[in-house]
Design a protein around this nucleic acid. Sequence first.
DNA 1: CTGTGTTTTTTATTGCAGTTATATACACTG
DNA 2: CAGTGTATATAACTGCAATAAAAAACACAG
Lengths: 293, 293
Amino acid sequence: MSSGLHREIIGDILRLGRDEGWAVDAPVGEKPLAARLGVSRTPVRRALIDLSERGILRRELGSGFKLNRPIDAAVIAECSNDAAGGAELYRKILNDRASGLIPLSVTENALLVHFGASRGDLRRALLRLSAEGIVQRQRGHGWQFSESLDNPQAILESYAFREAVETAALSQPDYRVDGAALERMRNAHEALMRKPASEIAPDMWFQVNAEFHETLASWSRNRFFLQAVKRQNALRRMHQFVDFPQLTPEQIKQSCEDHLAILDALAAGDRPRAVALLSAHLSQAAQDWHNQN
Amino acid sequence: MSSGLHREIIGDILRLGRDEGWAVDAPVGEKPLAARLGVSRTPVRRALIDLSERGILRRELGSGFKLNRPIDAAVIAECSNDAAGGAELYRKILNDRASGLIPLSVTENALLVHFGASRGDLRRALLRLSAEGIVQRQRGHGWQFSESLDNPQAILESYAFREAVETAALSQPDYRVDGAALERMRNAHEALMRKPASEIAPDMWFQVNAEFHETLASWSRNRFFLQAVKRQNALRRMHQFVDFPQLTPEQIKQSCEDHLAILDALAAGDRPRAVALLSAHLSQAAQDWHNQN
DNA sequence: CTGTGTTTTTTATTGCAGTTATATACACTG
DNA sequence: CAGTGTATATAACTGCAATAAAAAACACAG
């Protein structure tokens, strides 16, 4: 209920621990965590206390917290139930907008009653959405959803923009591939392809896809390319549920293969080839979409 | 004082009238204005009443308002004194941040006492800044100015990004030049070049420059290219006061000439040449900046 | 119909207690 | 020092009544 920061932080800590493979009995310090997460010790402490009440950590008075059992998927799932809180509303808004349940231009009060949320939560969600360029405060009353990817023209424009930005990102002189991240992504794609088509949840594919494009952009070592790609992903996220049913299993498979080919080219250090593949990949997606509509 | 919408609208109406050259005695209708400005009639009406109290309009009961005297620079200046209101704080924040008076990470209350503003105005300003990606809410308390164009690395990245985006914009298949707008810009540049260097105010050059790049991008008929350029301009605006003194009159003159050459190429329908010139223009600017720092 | 003048309704802001969340400072330990 | 435990000071959020701003509705004129 309480929209506290420590809820979020519980999730952050667990993810951190999983990604770094913390060993059982390893000390989980409050100060270093606070520094890494960019918050003060107070909310970290609350999160740690919470976690120790769940038996994931244990507290040794005088020397802080220790990891009590390994951090696996089960643990994360257990704790992310209530961790949701704030992000929840954000998703709901995107969802309901994408499916037309809320109109392009909408008043704050209308949203309030529609979702039965608290004003504060709503404001936070809108703040985030507006930072992502998805919604804008309009003069006078109300909020205006950016004439986003809800019309065919906008989607074609989006593809054109992404093609320009992402290929340019790959062509930056400082471009440098992170081998470890590349391997992780390759695995994620291969795992996805092994699944039967019916088992691929919409947001799984979206997640992998978004991460692929963002990571590629991040290797440009240029924050603006990365930011632009992230913005596009945020817009696309808004329509993932609507668009997905139109994506055939073949198309998803094809996309995965495209991605893998691009990763191969990058791993081999052949950037011109990666650029060409990426460009073709995006044009093809635009073309497919165009034909379907 | 009152941060009302009608203050803004006064300015909007005057600018509209000037740009369209409204004749004396022409009717100034409340409903059409409301529609064009995207607000309801109420604030428009208040603005019109305000303007008629200043003698700029006159009211004819039963048939609305008429223009009483031509809209020239003096009129606009007269009314923009208090029209400022909301936008004022926005500028002040950018200013004080650019000159280091407020730190990168700052709390809402600190800003409140620093500017002596009302909480509401402050929130509005921050909302706008955050929509432009200049500032972000940070977890816990306070706001974080995006590690924006305040370090050399970021500026170089910005130039690289702009070069990619703007040249790509010019290369879009749907690109179409608007002759009238092109002529207006050409005039603005020539007027600027006729002035002695000492009389060029920082924001005059910035204004012309920003409009040039935005207009070029807008001709791509792709909202995302335009949006990206606008975002970059917003970031750059933040540092116009700091950067400008470093710009020599020769550099400004050179920039103007570059811009004019690009406009010429576009007017002649030679887009590849325009792209090459634009690319050279931005690389050169990056180079100059790099050498100076 | 398009627009004006006026009224009504809706929407959002402001100001202010009370409360909670977060950061910070201080004393202490290994 | 780098860390913990605790206390304290700030900062921000909540809820609520009062108020202001803006939108929408209505009646009527050309």
